[in-house]
Amino acid sequence: MPIDKFITLESPCVPLPIENVDTDQIIPARFLKATTRDGFGDNLFCDWRYDKNGDPKADFVLNDPTYSGQILVAGKNFGSGSSREHAAWAIGGYGFKAVVSSFFADIFKNNALNNGILPVQISDAFLEQIFEAVEADPKTIIKIDLENQTISLPAKNISESFDINPYKKKCMINGYDDIDYLFSIKNEIEAWEAKNSN
């Protein structure tokens, strides 16, 4: 699927200061029966967000009108567990364009990038500063600049740089996906097969 281009993003955030948020929390397995990529945002964090009657739980951050924005900021080791890409579809479907944490599980990171959602991995200390700033002022703006690989809180005048694979960065900025690239090297793949078929 062609992905949305990501260059810079300035937005307030939704803070989720919980560690080890696994993909079963992001989207429980019972919602994985769909055969399209649409509609998962409605069930993002379903069991934290709604009670068993389907009513919103007032104490969960997505139900708190104080917080909004296109950036989800979460505790360390975000996205562990199942490889379900539905987790990335749910996050994207809800309207998040970036997830910020001090540590990401590998498969989630790949799935996010393949869907135009930027995982921004920062230090524990900077993550703590974001949580504190947002607690003090829920409208705190976070600025993510992919070209320069920086994330900053302009109001606090603090920033940090983050890593991203140069190829993936190019894909995000241009909206390319891996299949476009793989098709472009069809001859090399066939040559590998010819050499290794026995």
């Binding site: 490889s83 539905h86 393949n114 996906d177 891996d178 299949i179 793989l182 098709f183 793949i189 097969e193």
Partner: peptide, 22 residues
């Protein structure tokens, strides 16, 4: 190793995946 659905699509299409070496 486990992969996401976009990667399933890549393998179905090209029998290849793009992976950073762990």
């Amino acid at each position: 190793f486990g992969i996401g659905t976009s990667e399933v699509e890549m393998v179905l299409a090209t029998q290849c995946l793009m992976q950073s070496r762990p």
